[in-house]
Design a protein around this nucleic acid. Structure first.
Lengths: 222, 222
DNA sequence: AAGACAGTTCATTTTAAACTGAACTGTAAA
DNA sequence: TTTACAGTTCAGTTTAAAATGAACTGTCTT
C-alpha cells in the first residue's frame, strides 16, 4: 500500500531542479555549466542537484572529454513533467476543448527551434525513405537529390552549410527514442512549414498543431 | 518560458501531503479526521496541509454538517499522481508488457470496497438503464424490480439496508466524473463479482482485471 | 443550555535540506 | 609542463517550511 511516489515529487519540486528539468524538457542535452548559467546558481550547488537527479535515475550523463552532457534518462520523466505542468491554474483564454485530449506536446512539438515529437520523427524518416537525407553518426547528410528537394520548397542548403552552427544534426527524441532532423536545416524546415501555415504554435507551450492544410500538404510532400 | 510546474511538484512532494494524495487517489472522499488517522499526524498539521492543497486547487472540500469531505478537485491531479508513481524504480518481478499500456487503474479499479473506474460507472449506468436502481440525490434507490434482480444474483437488499453504514451511496469517480454505486450494496456487488471470478485483483494496486469469464457474464447480466 | 466533537487559526519551535567556501580530480589547451 | 577549465566533493552555515501547543469557531447531541 505505501507508495513512495512523494519522494519523486519532492525531487522534482525543488526550484533549481525544476528549472533544470524544464530546460531539459526541450529534449536537448546540456552540459553542467550551460545548466548553471540557465538556472542561475553556483556550479557546486548545481552539481549537487544533478547528482540527486542522477541517483533517482531521472537524468543520465554522457561524458565527452571534459564535458558532461545531461538529459532525461527515460520518457517517463517527460510525462511526469508534462502532467505536473498540466496542474497549473489555466489561463482564462486557453481553449477548453483542446485540453480534454492527450496533451498535444507528445504528438507534435518544437524542440529548441526544430520540429520534434512523433511528427518530427515521421517527417525525418520520410525524408530518409525518399533518399533526400541519410543518417551518419550524429548528423544527417543531404544527398544530391535532397539538395534539389529542399531547393524546391525554398531552402538553400549551400547557404545553411556556410553558417557557423551545425547544419543537419540528429537530435534524439525522448518520447520516440528515435533521431529527428535538427541543426540549421531542421530549423529552416520548421520555418518553412510555419510560413506555409502547415503548423500553428500553441501559445505558452512547445506544442504545435498540424493544420488541415498542413495535413494535406504533408501527405503530398512526405 | 518560465513555467512554474515545480511549485506543483513541491506541493505534492511533502511526505504528509503525498500520503494524503495517495489515499485520495482511491477516488473516495475523506474527512479531515479520517485522513489524520491514516496519515498519522496531528489535526492541526493536517489542516495546514489540506489548506495548501485546496489553495492550489488540487483538492476540493464539500461541507456536510460538521464534517468536511476532501477529494481531488479534478482528474488532472490523479494523472499527475499516476505519472509520478510511474517514475519509481520498477521492481524486478513486475511484468514489462503490462506497463506499456495505459495504467489499468483508470479503466477498472476498486474504490475503497466497491467497483470504480469506467467499468464501475458502466455497471452502475447499466443498472439504472435496466430500472433496477435510480439516482436520487446522493444515494441510489433500489426499485422493486431491482430487489428481485439483486436477489437473483445472491444479494439480499433487506439485510443490507438493516446495516448501519450507507446502503447505496453514490460515489463520484474522478476519471469518469460520473456517479457509481457505493455503500454496502456496492460492496456486496463487488464481492459477488469477485466470488464468481468475474474480476481478479492485481497485487499491490487497486487495479482490477476483468476475466474472460467476467466479460461474458457481464455482457449477459448488464 | 452544556458539553463533546470536527476542524481551523496563530505564534513558536524544530528540523531537514539548500546553499556557500575551500579544496580537490581529471581534461584540454599554450 | 604549466596554466586554465569543467566539474565534483566535503564541512559549515543559512533558511524555508513542517510540526507543535494553545486558543478559537461552528455543529451536533442530550
Amino acid at each position: 500500500m505505501e507508495h513512495d511516489f512523494g519522494s519523486m515529487a519532492a525531487l522534482i519540486g525543488d526550484p533549481v531542479r525544476a528549472r533544470i528539468l524544464w530546460i531539459l524538457f526541450g529534449g536537448r542535452a546540456y552540459t553542467a555549466s550551460e545548466l548553471a548559467a540557465c538556472v542561475d546558481t553556483s556550479p557546486q550547488n548545481l552539481s549537487m542537484h544533478l547528482a540527486k537527479l542522477i541517483k533517482a535515475d531521472l537524468l543520465s550523463v554522457e561524458v565527452q572529454g571534459r564535458h558532461r552532457y545531461y538529459s532525461f534518462s527515460r520518457p517517463e520523466v517527460a510525462y511526469a513533467v508534462e502532467s505536473l505542468a498540466g496542474l497549473l491554474p489555466r489561463k482564462p483564454g486557453a481553449s477548453q476543448a483542446a485540453e480534454k485530449e492527450d496533451p498535444p506536446i507528445r504528438v507534435c512539438r518544437t524542440c529548441y527551434d526544430h520540429l520534434a515529437g512523433s511528427v518530427g520523427v515521421a517527417v525525418t524518416e520520410s525524408l530518409v525513405g525518399m533518399g533526400t537525407i541519410r543518417l551518419s553518426g550524429r548528423t544527417f547528410e543531404v544527398t544530391e537529390k535532397g539538395d534539389r528537394w529542399f531547393d524546391a520548397i525554398g531552402i538553400d542548403c549551400a547557404e545553411l552549410r556556410a553558417q557557423r552552427r551545425g547544419f543537419a544534426r540528429a537530435c534524439l527524441d525522448w518520447t520516440e527514442r528515435r533521431p529527428h532532423l535538427a541543426g540549421s536545416l531542421g530549423a529552416a524546415l520548421l520555418q518553412v512549414m510555419m510560413d506555409r501555415q502547415w503548423l500553428r504554435r500553441m501559445e505558452g507551450t512547445r506544442a504545435v498543431l498540424v493544420t488541415g492544410k498542413g495535413r494535406k500538404a504533408m501527405s503530398e510532400y512526405f
